[in-house]
């Protein structure tokens, strides 16, 4: 029997077919390895903090939960709290990374002004 049939991939309305999703996972991972493998040590802390902000992408899942709640209050609360946590991560992460990087980029500019 086709194992994918067991996994319900054929009838999936919301979950993407498993194989497609696994391809996405695989290529995403490879892309991440390739993009990040070449970063100088100087930028590791900002990179870690920036990547961390991106992991707050779960806010999309939280938004989906709120919209699909259809007025179900416990689900609305769960989704909203999840959204709050995710946005804390996203907004805080990007801003703190920007603060760090602003210090790097400030220096050459100042020198030119002199």
């Amino acid at each position: 029997m086709d194992p994918l049939f067991l996994l319900g991939a054929a009838s999936a309305a919301q979950t993407p077919p498993l194989v497609d999703a696994l391809w996405v996972l695989l290529l995403g991972s490879l892309l991440g390895l390739e993009l990040i493998g070449k970063v100088p040590p100087t930028l590791h802390t900002p990179l870690m903090s920036g990547a961390n902000a991106i992991s707050g992408i779960t806010m999309l899942a939280a938004l989906t939960a709120i919209i699909k709640a259809n007025g179900n209050t416990p689900l609305l609360i769960l989704g909203s709290v999840s959204l709050g946590f995710a946005l804390f991560n996203v907004i805080g992460g990007f801003l703190v990374t920007d603060r760090m990087l602003a210090m790097f980029s400030r220096k050459p500019a100042r020198k030119e002004n002199r």
Partner: peptide, 18 residues
């Protein structure tokens, strides 16, 4: 994978690799 968002999978995988 739970909510069926490829965007989440890609972004999550990139951060995981990073």
């Amino acid at each position: 994978f739970v909510v069926g968002s490829q965007l989440l999978i890609v972004a999550g995988a990139m951060v995981g690799a990073a």
